[in-house]
Simulated scan of single mutants.
Amino acid sequence: MERSMLNITYRDRKTNIWVREKTKVTDVIEQVRRRKWTWAGQVSRIRDNRWTLRIITWKPYKRKRRKGKPVRRWRDELDDYWKGTIWQRIAQDRQMWKQHAEAFAQPRDTMAAQ
């Protein structure tokens, strides 16, 4: 779509990065990841017993899972980013949480936790 906006084709040998700079269109995935990060931080700072907090901390009943690849949950992406640390505790510190927001929003291959 962005290439058609600029009226160029792949034969013009312009990189996707160049095209993105010219169109100044923000990546939808990046926006979704930023909103997810913000929402996860807000929910983890909730102190009362709201349903949003209960959903995050809920563990499924001890049942057998279906065969095949396990379904990814929305929090699996956050768990992968923090690699073993409990991100709900880190989210209590807003400054530290905001520092990591930009790195989380980047595509997975460039994402690295400090």
Results as ranks from 00 to 15, higher is better:
residue 70 P to S: 06
residue 80 D to M: 08
residue 38 T to S: 14
residue 99 Q to H: 05
residue 94 R to C: 04
residue 70 P to M: 04
residue 103 A to P: 02
residue 38 T to W: 10
residue 20 R to P: 00
residue 92 Q to Y: 03
residue 17 I to A: 15
residue 94 R to D: 06
residue 40 A to K: 02
residue 19 V to K: 02
residue 114 Q to F: 11
residue 107 P to E: 06
residue 81 Y to N: 04
residue 19 V to R: 00
residue 49 N to C: 05
residue 99 Q to E: 13
residue 53 L to G: 09
residue 109 D to P: 04
residue 100 H to M: 09
residue 35 R to M: 13
residue 67 K to T: 11
residue 93 D to I: 01
residue 50 R to F: 09
residue 16 N to K: 06
residue 55 I to R: 06
residue 10 Y to K: 13
residue 34 R to V: 09
residue 35 R to C: 12
residue 18 W to E: 15
residue 96 M to K: 14
residue 24 K to F: 05
residue 60 P to N: 08
residue 106 Q to D: 09
residue 18 W to R: 11
residue 21 E to V: 06
residue 102 E to A: 12
residue 28 V to D: 12
residue 110 T to Q: 15
residue 95 Q to P: 00
residue 79 D to C: 10
residue 23 T to H: 02
residue 14 K to L: 09
residue 106 Q to H: 06
residue 95 Q to C: 05
residue 3 R to I: 02
residue 84 G to P: 04
residue 52 T to M: 12
residue 87 W to K: 03
residue 5 M to T: 08
residue 47 R to F: 06
residue 65 R to P: 03
residue 43 V to S: 05
residue 17 I to T: 14
residue 90 I to Y: 04
residue 12 D to G: 00
residue 30 E to I: 07
residue 2 E to Y: 01
residue 66 R to I: 04
residue 62 K to I: 07
residue 4 S to T: 08
residue 28 V to N: 11
residue 4 S to R: 11
residue 113 A to L: 09
residue 21 E to Y: 07
residue 43 V to E: 07
residue 98 K to Y: 01
residue 76 D to K: 02
residue 22 K to H: 07
residue 29 I to E: 15
residue 14 K to V: 14
residue 5 M to L: 11
residue 108 R to P: 07
residue 93 D to V: 00
residue 77 E to I: 03
residue 88 Q to M: 10
residue 62 K to L: 08
residue 79 D to M: 13
residue 73 R to D: 07
residue 32 V to H: 11
residue 87 W to C: 02
residue 99 Q to R: 11
residue 51 W to F: 11
residue 102 E to K: 10
residue 72 R to P: 08
residue 40 A to R: 01
residue 111 M to N: 13
residue 23 T to A: 03
residue 112 A to H: 13
residue 97 W to A: 01
residue 37 W to V: 04
residue 47 R to C: 06
residue 54 R to T: 01
residue 39 W to R: 15
residue 15 T to P: 00
residue 38 T to R: 15
residue 113 A to D: 03
residue 22 K to F: 02
residue 113 A to H: 12
residue 107 P to V: 08
residue 7 N to R: 05
residue 16 N to H: 07
residue 8 I to C: 05
residue 22 K to C: 07
residue 36 K to T: 12
residue 72 R to E: 11
residue 86 I to W: 08
residue 11 R to S: 11
residue 86 I to R: 14
residue 58 W to D: 08
residue 96 M to V: 11
residue 20 R to K: 14
residue 8 I to A: 00
residue 42 Q to I: 13
residue 29 I to H: 11
residue 85 T to H: 14
residue 36 K to R: 15
residue 7 N to S: 09
residue 59 K to N: 10
residue 111 M to C: 15
residue 32 V to K: 14
residue 18 W to D: 14
residue 72 R to T: 10
residue 81 Y to A: 06
residue 106 Q to I: 02
residue 104 F to P: 03
residue 83 K to M: 12
